[in-house]
């Protein structure tokens, strides 16, 4: 579903991605772990073309993301992304937030878009908030709306960029539960997170990034109990102590 080949990315002189190779198969949940600045968010943003790479290739559902010939607007309809800061549209009601892209990008009929949006709101458990503005929601609710907004486009892939890092502890669970449901429905997901419990439980594979390279890639059990690389061992040790 997602193929990343020898990707290099520089910000000015800073070499942030140093030759990434990665394959994510259909229905797989891949969790990206690593310290801040290791390049995991940048890698995620390369998958939907928010960042351009200087070398290498990224393809999603057979579409080459990083060549200028690709119609990115069309490609991105297949790729949902959820951000740390939710990034809901503050001037629109919750319902409108979910409807806007199906309406304007996919040109879905008003009635159909509304029905889909209402169903999604039902699903994330806040149908009564349809006509409320985002700033009247809790952080957890906002993030769930952001997920619903991405799902409304019926993407083939969902990317999550630290979706729970800006949330109060008691709201993290409601967002993770929703993501867990998505995983059970065989959504292809790439998740950047610091939630080790989620990684261990939900991930099919975990990729550990350090200084712009993937140093370890494997099943959760192997990753947590028998890490091969020295950096991974240090990381796991620190995380488990905390």
């Amino acid at each position: 579903m997602i193929t990343i080949q020898d990707v290099h990315k520089w910000f000015g002189k800073l070499h942030v991605l140093k030759g990434i190779d990665l394959k994510v198969t259909e229905g797989e949940v891949l969790v990206l772990i690593g310290a801040s600045g290791s390049g995991k968010s940048t890698l995620l943003r390369c998958i939907n073309g928010l960042e351009r790479v200087q070398q290498g290739q990224v393809s999603v559902a057979g579409i080459d993301i990083q060549t200028s010939k690709t119609n990115l607007n069309r490609a991105r309809q297949q790729i949902g992304i959820v951000f740390q800061q939710f990034n809901l549209f503050l001037h629109m009601t919750v319902l409108k937030n979910i409807m806007i892209s199906p309406l304007k990008v996919k040109k879905v009929a008003q009635q159909e878009a509304k029905e889909t949006a209402l169903k999604l709101l039902q699903r994330i458990g806040i149908p009564e908030k349809a006509n409320v503005y985002p700033d009247q929601l809790s952080g957890g609710q906002q993030q769930r709306v952001a997920i619903a907004r991405a799902l409304a486009m019926q993407p083939q892939v969902m990317l999550f960029d630290e979706p729970t890092s800006a949330l109060d502890p008691e709201m993290i669970k409601e967002v993770l539960d929703l993501m867990r449901e998505l995983a059970e429905e065989n959504m292809t997901m790439v998740v950047v997170t610091h939630e080790m419990g989620f990684a261990r439980e939900v991930a099919d594979r975990i990729a550990f990034m350090d200084d712009g390279v993937i140093v370890e890639l494997g099943k959760p059990q192997q990753f947590f109990e028998n890490p091969q690389h020295k950096r991974t061992q240090q990381f796991i040790q620190r995380v488990l102590q905390a």
Binding site: N73, G80, F83, L90, M153
Partner: peptide, 11 residues
């Protein structure tokens, strides 16, 4: 980020 979120949805 409002622009990024919009573009990410295909706008």
């Amino acid at each position: 980020t409002q622009m990024e979120a919009s573009r990410s949805m295909g706008m």
